[in-house]
Design a protein around this nucleic acid. Structure first.
Lengths: 334, 334
DNA sequence: CTGAAAGCGCTAACAC
DNA sequence: GTGTTAGCGCTTTCAG
């Protein structure tokens, strides 16, 4: 078959080839039960012969739906959203949905651009991860009454569902356990790239301290003139010492660990280290860093599944789904 | 504005609101220079008033193009394709192209499914990373004369361009340098997940050995009954020793390092370690692993740019673009 | 069970 | 300059 000079093969070509009307062809394409068996055969033969592929664009126009959904992620987040994407894609594949990938840079106002695009392209839905979407933009999106699945936080709303892990509870429980044992020299390393997540973590840890009649004061802020977390921590730990240091991402946890060790501290004997967001590297690096294990794959898979439900207008028992976490204690915990 | 019960706003609505014909509205949307300034104003006012967004699907139908291109990656590859995606997405954004993300599992024959989808959705082009696409499938794709950009290897063809780094040359040069110094106890760790890449590496290293009148024989195969590379290497290095061990991905390099050290070898004194595919973790892990630095971001960016050229039918000076690499020597090299 | 025809929203000749 | 009209490829009443 020579694609180059070939006339486009449309539903008309098939209809003509099979000697039926295009309506009939449409019926067999869509598996309508009314068409007689022998005509179905004829049509299918014609389809095969011409190698006909229904034009999804035209179908989209006629049906007012695109079976495409937009996925918006923070730029450069693939190190920790990789499994999420796999989960999402795998169930999207099952339901025949296409995923259009967008990334947004924190701070830069390109989210509205993305929304514009999503509306113009008539996406059936949009899945947004984390703090990529500010509430004003969210409101903007609501005007178009497009189904939204929010990943990472619990967000309530009309055509919004969310799938998340309660990080506030996680860090609250984790630190409470230390406080109970009288250990309160606990520090939290700032993650400059995820301000919203930081807020959540700080809230959780503060709550734990308050319950024990104490005040949390060891948020290690990384000054903006330091390019990397490591370069600052290296200095910080030369004259600071904590019993437990909690970091958000694996890179920050490793940076913490390296900084401590290079300043002569023993891990975990002198300071324990804990990482909020697990990654495969936590198992690989020595000593292996203890961390929270979050079902990232499931986050994506569940998000996509609930999206299909919204699109099918299926009843949704729970508009916000909380997934549970595990604590994986490894070498950086006593 | 109440999206729910609002009538769809189309080009007709705008035309009516502005008191012009839909052709005129179409002209101002597409920035045609012929329309008079005051009517343009009228139309734009109407567009703003109605919050009209052109339907990209209808445009796609009329223009026979979707401004969408498919990106096919190996499943679970996001750890090392993350920057590539960022590069791709950033230039796609500039040219207003949407990226539809697909993943394919090695071995499983789902590539044809993806191709089917790509054709049905009338993607303008397809960008494929690495060994995701076998030659038979590639031939299949050629029937549809859809522009293809192949990432990772040099592939020649009619409507095919490729962007790649010559890994064979890289490993050839790197090992040659050792051989020149008389060091020939060099081993290569198998990467079960990237068979095609392994072939390339083996070819390069074998060539280097041959040029020095030697034979390369230290390919460390990971038996299939071992779940992880590490679990096997752990055992392997209890009775093997090499001067230099080369691994493909960072995880394998770290696994190698851990295995060596846990078997009492000193790195790099006893054995040096080198990693073919750089990642940010190589800088973080201690000792820091020496590696090849590949311009992953550029791979994506260049691929997308050349794709736009193909789509614009711009003249393309070079259908296959080789990007250069750097060797980053860190702590695992003497 | 099948066909005819209207419509999905937009573009692009072609008139005026 | 602007309007008219014929597609783009498909779905879906509505007849028969």
């Amino acid at each position: 078959m020579d694609g180059k000079n070939m006339k486009r093969v449309t539903i008309y070509s098939v209809a003509h080839e099979a000697g039926v009307s295009l309506a009939t062809v449409s019926r067999v394409i869509n598996g309508s039960p009314v068409v007689r068996e022998d005509t179905r055969q004829k049509v299918q033969a014609a389809i095969a012969k011409l190698d006909y592929k229904p034009n999804a664009i035209a179908q989209g126009l006629a049906l007012q739906k695109t079976t495409s959904i937009a996925l918006v992620l923070p730029e450069s987040s693939f190190n920790y959203t990789g499994k999420l994407i796999n989960g999402l894609l795998n169930v999207a594949k099952i339901y025949k949905y296409n995923i259009i990938l967008h990334t947004s840079t924190a701070g830069i106002n390109e989210m509205n651009e993305i929304i514009e695009n999503v509306i113009k392209s008539r996406m059936d839905g949009i899945i947004v991860y984390n703090d990529t979407l500010k509430s004003e933009e969210l409101k903007n999106l609501k005007n178009y009454s497009i189904p939204i699945v929010y990943l990472g936080y619990c967000v309530e709303g009309d055509s919004i569902c969310s799938v998340y892990v309660d990080l506030e509870k996680a860090i609250y429980e984790f630190t409470s356990d230390y406080l109970k044992r009288g250990i309160d020299n606990i520090a939290l390393v700032e993650d400059r790239k995820n301000p919203l997540e930081m807020e959540v973590l700080e809230r959780g840890i503060t709550k734990a301290f308050k319950e024990y009649g104490k005040k949390f004061g060891n948020l290690i802020r990384i000054p903006s003139d330091y390019r990397t977390t490591y370069s600052y921590l290296r200095k910080y730990f030369s004259n600071h010492k904590h019993d437990l240091v909690i970091a958000n991402r694996d890179t920050q946890a490793v940076a913490t660990m390296n900084s401590c060790m290079e300043n002569g501290m023993k891990v975990p004997e002198d300071t324990e280290i804990f990482c909020m967001m697990d990654s495969k590297y936590n198992d690989i690096v020595r000593p292996r860093i203890s961390s929270l294990s979050i079902p990232t794959y499931d986050l994506g898979a569940v998000a996509m599944r609930i999206m299909t439900k919204m699109l099918n207008k299926d009843p949704i028992s729970d508009k916000s789904i909380e997934l549970s976490y595990l604590v994986s204690l490894r070498d950086t915990t006593k």
